[in-house]
Simulated scan of single mutants.
Amino acid sequence: MKATLFSVALLVLLAHVQCDSKFHQLMKQCMEETKTAESDLKDFMSGGMQSNASENLKCYAKCLMEKQGHMVDGQFKADAMLATLNNVPQMKDKMAEITSGVNACKDMKGSNDCDTAFKVTMCLKEHKGLMGPH
């Protein structure tokens, strides 16, 4: 059986699975706060989410994580992320795989809080901790 493709990490996860106006507002706020252009996000995603992201994009990941309670004081909150994902109907039957990925990434550290958020995001992508559209 062909495995489900996991290609989109935290940067856009909830936008695709919830598509609610609150999350879109968070995305807009973070783009403004970090001076990240929508075109930069699209380029990053279409480029396969390579790890050579700008500092703005790394801080965008941090901003989203903080606003969702998934990062506090530079520390990734794995339990908070799992609780959020567990409440998304599309994720319920994939929680074992998601939990494994989140646990593999929970202790990632970067050179600063933005880098930590980005490293966690890339780790989740690598470990298939977050499911994206296929």
Rank of each mutant, 00 (worst) to 15 (best):
K2I: 07
K2D: 02
K2P: 11
K2A: 05
A3S: 09
T4H: 04
L5R: 13
F6Q: 07
F6V: 07
S7F: 05
S7I: 14
V8H: 00
V8I: 07
A9M: 08
A9N: 10
L10K: 00
L10Y: 02
L11H: 01
L11W: 02
L11N: 01
L13D: 00
L13M: 12
A15H: 14
A15S: 03
H16D: 15
D20M: 12
F23A: 10
L26F: 12
L26W: 07
K28T: 12
Q29D: 08
C30K: 00
E32H: 04
E32L: 12
E32Y: 12
T34G: 04
A37Y: 09
E38R: 06
D40Y: 15
L41T: 06
L41C: 05
K42R: 11
K42T: 02
D43E: 15
F44S: 00
F44Y: 13
M45C: 06
G48A: 11
G48C: 06
M49T: 14
M49W: 05
M49I: 10
Q50R: 13
S51N: 11
S51I: 06
N52P: 03
N52H: 08
N52Q: 15
A53E: 01
A53K: 01
E55W: 09
E55C: 03
N56S: 12
L57F: 15
L57N: 08
K58E: 13
Y60D: 03
Y60G: 00
C63F: 09
L64Q: 01
L64W: 12
M65A: 12
M65F: 10
M65T: 03
E66D: 02
G69M: 14
H70G: 01
H70S: 10
H70C: 10
D73F: 14
D73N: 06
G74T: 03
F76H: 09
A80R: 00
M81T: 10
M81G: 13
L82Y: 07
L82F: 14
L85N: 01
N86C: 09
N86Y: 11
N87M: 14
N87R: 08
V88G: 02
V88Y: 15
P89H: 14
Q90I: 15
M91P: 09
M91Q: 01
M91C: 04
K92Q: 12
D93R: 06
D93P: 08
D93H: 14
K94D: 11
M95F: 12
A96D: 02
E97V: 13
I98W: 03
I98A: 04
T99A: 11
V102E: 00
V102C: 03
N103T: 14
A104G: 00
A104P: 05
K106V: 13
D107W: 07
D107C: 14
G110C: 04
S111F: 12
N112A: 08
D113N: 10
T116A: 10
T116G: 05
A117K: 00
A117N: 01
F118C: 08
F118V: 09
V120E: 09
V120T: 13
T121N: 09
T121V: 13
M122C: 14
C123D: 08
E126A: 07
E126C: 04
L130T: 02
L130D: 00
M131P: 00
G132Y: 06
G132L: 11
H134C: 08
